[in-house]
Design a protein around this nucleic acid. Structure first.
Length: 603
RNA sequence: CGGGAUGUAGCGCAGUUUGGUAGCGCACUUCGUUCGGGACGAAGGGGACACAGGUUCGAAUCCUGUCAUCCCGACCA
């Protein structure tokens, strides 16, 4: 390809609405154009990058035995109603774009494809003998993100590879899940990016075990906790740890403390000379259920610890048996609108009585009481007395006439000691999620009544797994991980071009002739080569080549008359003056090496 | 949706306080000189100043409303 024909438009200034490096470089290099919030056009060079990633993904997925398909983007609401996700995905802060057709039927624009694929498979496959299968597609997805940001990182229209596997037994699902885990590691390695596999919450997709693949980068939206020995890594949403040791409170008879205006842990501790770990703090929340009921939650946790909202959501769902849309705090306003008297916020103990709810207009009449292990393990502690400006000291759980459900809803933090080995502690870093694999189990097959006949001749819901990779996000994440102050340094396997030939001075006929000759030769060898034949000054061409990040740069300049060229590696800036023939040989060797690596690994 | 900020040429910005009919740098066009790290000179082209009302002899500037974009929280590949 010729730069003169590439409609290459690069920007010197950084567009004001781009915050992170990778987004700025994509815009400056002319790779993408914004059309609306979270909606981007992929320009020709970007499309080449996406195709390279796509092709790596296809090679590896095909190699793993998966079958490629293409599913519709327009989904009938009925399908989503059957799985029970229509409301959650469209109402309130739901992320599914939806519309009605001319017959007034509801449709959604596919944010994910479990419903569609499960329906198809259940219609098509009826026997365990036809299983397992693993189907994937590479396709544009739509999610009406509450806040699109960072260019392709969180866009509303994006390219994703998603795969769905169907099994007759759980063990077989686990097998495929492990194979996908391995395949993903190969895909990311092929793409030339470093990822960390972390344990993850399965979130809205639901189901059992799940793992995310993170590109580590300071701009990442997720917080990752890893153990110092490298054996454990998890998203903070999921991470488990040992709480720091509490400062034990000596045994004594319960006393009441006067604690005027000491409604925060800090003020309580400094005035009463106690340690946060000696307190059981109580947080009052409301679970807004899908069936439009509202369940008050009373959560107790040790004073020096914080609640992990994801874990809380999961435990509250499990214990209440209801689908929860959201969890919000109970505020004085909310009490008022329920026609309830005000509660002594700041001095509430785990034994707050259900009686206080009896006059509520629409809330459930008793608390769902959860206590985090950190608080449940305290022998003697300080807690609110359920009276304004009053706390109690030396309280025990036996004294309180309540039996909350013991759970882990504590937020693990950097510095906490690990579950698998108390000698190890957690460190934190940020990451960009580029892949996620899930063992869905039978969640969707049950909801959609998708069954097969098992070996005993009985109907059984399919065992399912699902596996996603954000293709367009991955492209940007690769830049976030590979750039310098001059621009992008694409890993060669996903670079839009492998080499750029820069003719330093187009006026010089020797340079032009030699440049064109090398261009033809590299092209005939199947190398993705770009030639900068623009009538620009050398400096401009060098700046552009650095900015757009082509891995190899071959400059045909002053030494062209003696067949000498300059070969530079973009990422290392290592540069050599070589005879043209030798430079070509070296290039072929370097580029083919990266390609054969790809092929041999996939066997 | 809540909190904060910004909308002036393709991009980056000034002008808004104190109303007087739009400017700078980059990019673009033409000519000349230059030609290995975003050249220089000269001459050009491009703007209903986000939109809609209002105040005024006169509005980018003042008032009201709307919309869009970005940042901080919930969502996720």
């Amino acid at each position: 390809m010729r730069v003169s024909r590439l409609m290459l438009v690069t920007l010197r200034d950084v567009p004001a609405d781009a915050e992170i490096t990778s987004h700025q470089l994509l815009l400056r290099g002319g790779y993408i154009r914004r059309i609306a919030a979270g909606v981007y056009a992929y320009m020709p060079m970007m499309w080449r990058v996406l195709n390279k990633i796509t092709s790596i993904v296809q090679t590896r997925m095909d190699g793993s035995g998966a079958l490629q398909t293409l599913l519709p983007q327009l989904h009938p609401a009925e399908l989503w109603e059957r799985s029970g996700r229509w409301k959650g995905y469209t109402a309130g802060e739901g992320i599914m774009f939806n519309l009605t057709d001319r017959q007034n039927r509801n449709f959604g624009l596919g944010p994910t494809h479990e419903e569609v694929i499960t329906t198809i498979i259940s219609e098509l496959l009826h026997s365990y003998k036809q299983l397992p299968v693993n189907l994937y597609q590479i396709q544009t997805k739509f999610r009406d993100e509450i806040r699109p940001r960072f260019g392709l990182m969180r866009s509303r229209e994006f390219i994703m590879k998603d795969a769905y596997s169907f099994h007759s037994q759980e063990i077989d699902l686990k097998d495929t899940y492990e194979r996908m885990n391995k395949t993903y590691k190969e895909i990311f390695a092929d793409c030339g990016i470093n990822t960390v596999a972390v344990y993850a919450d399965s979130g809205a997709i639901g189901g059992g075990a799940s793992q995310e693949f993170m590109v580590t980068a300071d701009s990442g939206e997720d917080l990752i906790l890893t153990s110092s020995d490298g054996l454990y890594a998890a998203n903070q949403e999921k991470a488990e740890s040992r709480p720091p040791k509490a400062n034990p409170l000596d045994k004594a008879e319960v006393i009441e403390l006067e604690t005027p205006d000491q409604i925060t842990i800090e003020s309580l501790c400094s005035t009463q000379e106690i340690h946060p770990s000696q307190i059981v703090k109580v947080i009052l929340m409301l679970a807004l259920n899908e069936d439009e009921t509202t369940q008050p939650l009373l959560i107790a946790i040790r004073g020096d610890q914080e609640v992990n909202e994801t874990k809380l959501m999961n435990m509250a769902t499990k214990e209440s048996g209801k689908t929860i849309l959201d969890i919000v705090q109970i505020t004085p306003d909310k009490l008022k609108s329920q026609g309830l008297e005000q509660w002594p916020f700041g001095a509430i103990g785990p034994d707050l009585k259900d009686k206080l709810l009896h006059n509520a207009k629409s809330w459930e009449k008793s608390f769902l009481r959860l206590v985090d292990n950190s608080a449940a393990d305290l022998d003697y502690f300080v807690c609110g007395a359920n009276k304004k400006d009053t706390h109690r000291k030396f309280v025990t759980w036996d004294l309180l006439d309540v039996s909350p459900i013991k759970v882990d809803i504590r937020k693990a933090k950097a510095g906490d000691h690990c579950i698998h080995d108390p000698k190890q502690y957690l460190k934190e870093c940020r990451g960009i999620e580029v892949g996620h694999i899930f063992q869905l189990g039978q969640k969707y097959s049950k909801a959609l009544n998708a069954t097969f006949t098992n070996e005993e001749g009985k109907q059984e819901p399919f065992w399912m797994g699902c596996y996603g990779i954000g293709i367009s996000r991955l492209a940007q994440a690769a830049i976030e991980q590979n750039n310098d102050k001059e621009g992008i340094c694409w890993p060669i396997s996903i670079a839009p071009f492998e080499v750029i030939i820069v003719i330093a001075n187009m006026q010089d006929i020797n340079q032009q002739t030699l440049g064109e000759k090398i261009y033809r030769e590299l092209k005939s060898l199947g190398i993705d080569v770009l030639i900068d034949d623009r009538n620009e000054r050398a400096g401009v061409k060098f700046k552009d080549a650095d900015l757009i990040g082509i891995p190899w740069r071959l400059v045909v300049g002053r030494e062209a008359s003696s067949q000498q060229v300059e070969l530079m590696e973009r990422s290392t800036k290592k540069c050599k003056i070589l005879g043209a023939d030798i430079a070509i040989k070296k290039l072929i060797k370097e580029i083919c090496q990266s390609k054969t690596y790809l092929r041999t690994e996939s066997l």
